[in-house]
Design a protein around this nucleic acid. Structure first.
Length: 419
RNA sequence: GUGGGCGUAGUUCAGCGGUUAGAACGCCUGGCUGUGGCCCAGGAGGUCGGGGGUUCGAAUCCCCUCGCCCACCCCA
């Protein structure tokens, strides 16, 4: 094979496209009910936008971005996530002047140069939402509940909604210090990775699968008991609202975010059905990000859904079935029949009827086989006998009933579908 | 970036030193000269990922290389 797709970037072929379309249309529909409007931003941005937005010492920015120098010497990057672009567009368009509050939903590909594995790809797709301009915990809760509802609306049930508070600029450093001190006392018992994490991202130690580490940090202080008054109140309020909204959730103080802009509320939707990559969506609050990117000091909260992971979960739950075919097949025998049929087919298609036909003069048997394979519900047969009479045979593939009609009357025999 | 597994027909895989490399499914043709699914018969389709080596002989053993997958890391 001379050419193949780039590692970690795969084709989505027609056989699996209906699941994607279902996912996208359900998202736009459900999030639309909550007031989210679709936004489309470029896939490429100035590298600096992501460095500022995501944080210069995050793994994503340090190692995973596809960056290149444009001819004009600008450093550009393929977007590794969607929030920074959306906030940039919000600021650049001046949308905050008109409304202040804005809710956006976006769908599209993201790029991270990681080592691919199940549920993790170099080009992957996210559906994301951002609510900008609201600091009331009600919006956190509403968004978490919306995501939960969205997955249920898709028909999924094998997932858990988990929430946490990461604290703020005031209390998180204090907690990190306490937790860091704790880890140092256990230093000798920790694996090499966790010893490194003490310096880089201590909270990651909670994710470690090493049994010794799990035992060592069993008694570790949790962020929940170290939040400042404001953060604690906010978190409790989020939980109260979630209960009010009837959304089941689990508090998990071990949820960590990989991007620097998150503070206070963090949440994930997780599943145990997808192997190692267990989060199908994740997000949180990012007060301060809009300001950091050059806009007014407005709060925000958002989350992103990993589409490939959701599709896999849909497949595992038998929710990714192909759409029913509403195709009509034209079996044409001989050149005269074809001459006669071409304008008729054209006009029927323009009336909204899906039609496939035989282009290469195969035998009727072979055309019937093809019609069956594409699950045509009706086959229109036009051969020499029919042409001579100006008629066509209409065969119902399910009942096997056939009738003969005038070619000019074909349109009347098909249900009119909206064009 | 680190580790492990695997690359044989369109697909999933068997063969793991010895004649012309197999199966299932899929595809094509015919049985049914103008009627699909089921059945039956036949057919097409493979530089055994690539390169080098060992051997009388390599898909099979060794080395290198490329690719895919899974896990770590990290994350959606």
């Amino acid at each position: 094979m001379k050419y193949s797709s780039i590692k970690g970037m795969s084709d989505i072929m027609p056989s699996e496209i209906s699941a994607w379309q279902k996912l996208e249309s359900t998202a736009l529909e459900v999030f639309g009910l909550y007031g989210y409007l679709e936004i489309r931003t470029p896939i490429v941005e100035k590298t600096d936008l992501f460095v500022r937005g995501i944080g210069s010492n995050t793994m994503v920015v340090e190692k995973e971005m596809y960056s290149f120098k444009d001819i004009s010497d600008d450093m550009l990057s393929l977007r590794p996530e969607g929030t920074a672009s959306v906030i940039r567009a919000y600021i650049e368009s001046g949308a905050y002047q008109a409304e202040g509050i804005a809710k956006y939903v976006y769908i599209g590909p993201m790029f991270r140069r990681e080592r691919p594995q199940k549920g993790r790809y170099r080009q992957f797709h996210q559906i994301g939402v951002e609510a900008i301009g609201l600091s009331d915990p009600l919006i956190d809760a509403e968004q978490i509940a919306m995501g939960d509802f969205f997955f249920k609306k898709l028909g999924l049930s094998d997932f858990t909604t988990e929430i946490n508070s990461l604290g703020c600029k005031k209390c998180r450093p204090e907690y990190n210090k306490v937790f860091g001190e704790f880890l140092k006392t256990k230093h000798a018992r920790l694996c090499a990775d966790c010893q490194r994490r003490i310096l880089t991202n201590p909270l990651r130690a909670f994710d470690c699968k090493n049994p010794d580490c799990i035992a060592a940090i069993k008694e570790a202080p949790l962020i929940g008991s170290h939040l400042c008054k404001e953060c604690s109140d906010h978190f409790l309020s989020v939980q109260k609202r979630l209960n009010q909204l009837g959304t089941k959730f689990v508090v998990n103080h071990k949820i960590v975010r990989g991007l620097d802009y998150y503070m206070r509320t963090a949440f994930e939707y997780t599943t145990d059905k997808l192997g190692s990559q267990n989060a199908i969506a994740g997000g949180g609050r990012y007060d301060g990000l809009v300001h950091d990117l050059g806009g007014p000091n407005l709060p925000g909260v958002g989350f992103a859904i990993g589409m490939e992971r959701v599709i896999m979960l849909m497949q595992a739950s038998n929710l990714a079935a192909a759409a029913e075919s509403d195709m009509v097949f034209f079996a044409l025998l001989g050149e005269t029949a074809r001459e006669k049929a071409i304008p008729v087919i054209n006009s029927l298609r323009q009336d909204g009827i899906k039609i496939e036909l035989d282009y290469d003069g195969h035998s009727l048997k072979s055309q019937m086989r093809r019609a069956d394979k594409m699950a045509a519900h009706t086959v229109v047969i036009i051969g020499d006998e029919e042409v001579a009479k100006g008629k066509a045979v209409i065969r119902n593939m399910r009942t096997k009933e056939q009738e003969e009609v005038n070619i000019g009357d074909l349109a009347r025999h098909f249900v009119r579908i909206e064009v």
